[in-house]
Nucleic acid binder design. Structure first.
Lengths: 150, 150
DNA sequence: CATTATAGTTCGCAAAGCTAATTAGTGTCA
DNA sequence: TGACACTAATTAGCTTTGCGAACTATAATG
């Protein structure tokens, strides 16, 4: 166990928002640059959501991925074309399309996962345990930040 | 003062890398959607770096913003065109271009800063002080993560 | 002087995002 | 039943951002 002690009295949310935005934007950019040829970060993010959440509709995917329908239509089309994902029409409501990962998609996800996070993990390994612990908590908070309502 | 206590014994950097990547990517996407009309997140990020770091060259800007030269050339051209930034040729080495914020650019930055971070700040304000403190530290760590070598 | 190295630019391409308009299928209710 | 409204997804067209390759202009070096 480790203790991380911080002054909380004077946290300026506007200032924090500014710094957090810059940090997040830059890291996202850096991560984008690590994309493997063939699968881009957006495709990857969609694919891993499809795997994690299980069969879901295009609309569900849009909500989770925080993207507008036309964007997701294109991402899914690309994933289907490369055989990583399978589409099927809902028999009860033929407007709805369900999407699920194919065995090939699951394999591809598993295979590439290590490599995909290599860049980040490599840098994380250089951090002191205290700081890793901070990021660990921060990751969860970031998720909440985005999840809570749109 | 507040204490944030965390288990550090078993932090799996690969797992953390995965979660952090997802969280960061999604938040970055969400932030992009909050762009004000007229100034995009990339332009904004470049502009605020130019203000923060002071006069600097295109190459310096590329390094800080983690972007390739062609991209920065275009961003700067756009900022110059809208009068937010000023370019000047280095008299000692005429290959080099120095870039600085104009008064108009500084005004624009100041004016819009509040609004630009409103989305994030609004959400941050809902967090408990403990969690704010975590993000505060995380922001600094994220910066280091990207800064340390390319 | 010729060569090599460096700072930026231009060009052409691809990915990812959007809005607006369209298509296809459901539901409602007079 | 038949017209109308609603919903899920798609298509079309546009913008921004990013890249690599090739180029220009300038400096440095042998």
């Amino acid at each position: 166990m480790a203790s991380v002690t911080t002054t909380i009295a004077s946290i300026d949310t506007a200032e924090l928002a500014s710094r957090l935005r810059l940090g997040v934007t830059r890291l996202a950019r850096k991560l984008r640059q690590q994309a493997e040829p063939g699968i881009t970060p957006s495709l990857l993010s969609a694919l891993s959501t499809i795997e994690r959440v299980g069969p879901l509709t295009i609309g569900d995917l849009c909500a989770v991925e925080q993207v507008q329908p036309p964007t997701m239509t294109r991402l899914v089309a690309s994933l289907v074309e490369t055989g990583l994902v399978e589409r099927s029409v809902d028999p009860d409501d033929r407007r709805v399309a369900w999407v699920r990962v194919t065995p090939s998609g699951a394999r591809s996800l598993a295979q590439t996962r290590k490599r995909k996070e290599a860049y980040l993990a490599k840098r994380l390994r250089r951090l002191e345990p205290d700081r890793l612990a901070v990021l660990e908590e921060a990751a969860a908070i970031l998720d909440e930040l985005v999840e809570g309502e749109s």
